[in-house]
Write a protein that binds this DNA or RNA. Structure first.
Lengths: 301, 301
DNA sequence: CTCTGTTATTTGTCCTAGACAAAATTGACG
DNA sequence: CGTCAATTTTGTCTAGGACAAATAACAGAG
């Protein structure tokens, strides 16, 4: 395996660090220091790209870049998350066996994972399956990813397999007709969709009419879609990886774009620490969302 | 509905035009000319953002920005694609009725669309359904989108519903075991996945063992995944919207990263006009890909 | 008139270097 | 020990210059 070099655009794509950041780090911290081609443009060796990806991962965990770059290469030991974890209350009985499931992913054994999940789904029923298996499992995958136990492609495998399970489950449900019309999507740059699928499962079970539009809808288009589908509720999902800074502005902006009569709801680990916004419902858990759905119904009977 | 203003990052997100491009257009062509906030930063009114999106759409169609920006606002009439279209040979009988399907999407009638597609699937069988319905339908959606008959959110609805159908169909197939192990994914910034699902359907029908890893895998991670899963073939998909300039470099780069014994295949409308690359298979149609699979088998028996 | 190779224009991306504000940390003080 | 202010850190923005790849325009040959 050769080690070709990346230009700055390729590094941005592969690490998620913007060109501006890459340049300003070089200026400030003296890392990364790429080679230059004949044309004076940066050529990052694969080694530096790997290190950058590691740094990015630790940053998403709450570390600060200045420190990380200074640290030699025993960063690997710093895997302990700085961000104070929830102190792991007593694990509910139904949450047991999750690590075993992730072990299957770690072994790249798609078939066994799928089978084990099918069994849990049959045993628990869809609602409990989503709330007590898929949701905590997704959280655990986040942890595994944060402390380096999962490679990117293992997280992708998990996402893809779980995707299939949830869609399969949803497809067996009768289309809801009695509840509100709920438009489910996410904003540009937000590609995570498992949260949307979970909500769709639960809401459809409750008889709501879900219209899933996939991820990454431009704001103005969300407004048009809400009008076209006469949505009662527009529900967005923000993952923990989404830049939190942008969320409040984004939601306020969208609130202005949407028809007044449409409710705007946002959920996912990305909104956990967002301050309340006028006219926008923020939900930290699936239970909160279900409660809000029930509340909506009492107000629109 | 108010018209709040976008900062340059929001415009990049919503239009897909990079900050560099937005600034250089302003300098060169005098459009867009955003307002400035107290801090001297650009504030784009929603009107300009809409126009930029329109320009971007026409550019993807083959028009050049300089001309587009000069044109007042009867651009709308320029909807005629500049890119020479294939002159629409005699439409095969099986391709009939596709416009009716898209009409259902245009009416936002998800249920009827899904039902109609289910019928076609049952009638044609999976292979013909993919080749004669889904593939041409996806092409037509591209056309509709290009000449403005589809809004963004309508394309999203189509993608989501078709996604469901294909996954449902795939889930009923027995997992292939006799063929090569095929790893299916796409590179960062490439989010289109219907092509991957189509290939997965056909390959799984042929008995190949498909490992789908979703979209947007960093290059180095694709290499790791190929090793971990001992993939015989790594298959990538490039949509027509993916920046063509980047594709050859990307593929050459990836070729170096992959284990020598793994084949690298790329397909999708993005590779239609890409020059041949050493050690990389390029496929313009699903038939080509199936032929390559058969060929692979004769060489590895 | 069509094809092919050469020159000119268009266009995206990269470069440097400076500035500033939001977020996070530190320190002072009640 | 908690709260508010000062300070550092960090990302993003700005400006204009430069260059090369892609595309269009043109010239000359068959």
């Amino acid at each position: 395996m050769n080690t070709p070099s990346f230009n700055i655009a390729a590094v941005e794509r592969d690490t998620g660090l913007s060109k501006d950041v890459l340049r300003v780090w070089e200026r400030r911290y003296g890392f990364p220091v790429p080679d230059r081609d004949n044309n004076g443009e940066r050529c990052y060796p694969a080694e530096q790209v790997d290190r950058l990806r590691l740094i990015k991962r630790l940053m998403d965990l709450g570390h600060r870049p200045g420190k990380l770059i200074a640290t030699p290469l025993d960063e690997l030991s710093e895997l302990a998350p700085r961000r104070s974890k929830a102190p792991a209350l007593a694990v509910p009985a139904s949450h047991e066996g999750l690590d075993e499931l992730l072990t299957l992913i770690k072994q790249h054994d798609a078939a066994s994972y799928q089978q084990a999940m099918q069994q849990r789904l049959a045993r628990q029923g869809l609602q409990a399956f989503v709330q007590d298996t898929v949701a905590p499992l997704t959280g655990k995958v986040g942890e595994y990813w944060e402390d380096g136990r999962f490679e990117v492609f293992e997280e992708h495998l998990f996402t893809e397999l779980t995707n299939r399970l949830l869609r399969q489950a949803i497809s067996t449900l009768p289309g809801g007709t009695r509840g509100p019309r709920v438009l489910l999507t996410s904003v540009p740059d937000e590609v995570h969709f498992l949260g949307l699928l979970m909500v769709e499962s639960l809401f459809t079970l409750e008889g709501a009419e879900c219209i899933a539009l996939g991820t990454q809808m431009p704001l103005l288009e969300i407004g048009r879609a809400a009008e076209a589908h006469q949505a009662d509720i527009v529900a967005l999902s923000f993952s923990g990886a989404f830049p939190q800074r942008q969320i409040p502005g984004l939601l306020q902006h969208l609130r202005l774009v949407l028809p007044k009569e449409a409710a705007l709801w946002a959920g996912g680990s990305g909104v956990a620490r967002i301050a309340k916004i006028d006219g926008v419902g923020l939900f930290n858990t699936l239970d909160d969302a279900l409660a809000a759905l029930a509340m909506w119904r009492t107000q629109h009977d």
